[in-house]
């Protein structure tokens, strides 16, 4: 069955919850690579400072630039899931797709000399159930559709508008210091 592109799920990180601990990277390498090595993770954490952390993996874009940019046609996208597939024989690890991706979601594999990207754990025993989401101690990771994200954003906004006093004492979430 071909799903609608709106139904594609991807892993997102809630910036307010993610504290950049990097556990997801260890889980990903364990599940997909049978070892512990964040350099082999399909999800990557950036801990910019104490308050600004986010984990990033493939967003499963429509007409993804990574696929379009590959000079060897080594990348393709599964129509139903949106997962990017890499033809290991065709990929030359030139990294053009890495530069094309706005999210830094693709990486060069340290051993295999190809690019690799989130497969939503479909190639593992946990078929289609991303384990980073299951393990995240902060429940900061979600496996959702873009529509769900939009719904949640609207719910949050409306709640804030209707209950403005709840957060008025707290400093704004958008304020960030340049410090650690």
């Amino acid at each position: 069955m071909v799903e609608r592109y709106q139904d594609r799920k991807f892993v997102v990180s809630n910036q307010e919850k993610c504290n950049g601990c990097g556990l997801c990277e260890y889980v990903c390498s364990m599940v997909n690579e049978k070892t512990f090595n964040p350099n082999k993770s399909r999800i990557r954490v950036t801990r910019l400072n104490l308050l600004t952390n986010v984990a990033v993996s493939c967003r499963k874009c429509v007409d993804p630039l990574c696929v379009a940019s590959c000079p060897k046609n080594a990348l393709s996208q599964e129509e139903n899931t949106g997962i990017i597939r890499v033809n290991e024989h065709a990929c030359t690890a030139c990294g053009w797709c890495i530069g094309a991706c706005s999210f830094g979601a693709l990486n060069l594999h340290p051993d295999k000399k190809i690019v690799y990207v989130c497969n939503s754990c479909t190639d593992t025993d946990h078929k289609g159930d991303p384990q980073c989401v299951q393990w995240c101690p902060e429940k900061a990771l979600q496996y959702v559709t873009a529509e769900t994200l939009a719904q949640k954003a609207r719910q949050k906004l409306v709640a804030q508008l209707l209950e403005p006093s709840e957060n008025s004492e707290k400093p704004s979430d958008t304020q960030q210091s340049s410090q650690c």
């Binding site: 504290n19 601990c21 308050l51 902060e138």
Partner: peptide, 18 residues
């Protein structure tokens, strides 16, 4: 502002305060 843990640890023993 945030409960902060150490590397790959889910126990958030420190508080990031502002």
């Amino acid at each position: 502002k945030k409960a902060v843990g150490c590397g790959a640890c889910g126990v958030n023993c420190n508080s990031a305060v502002m």
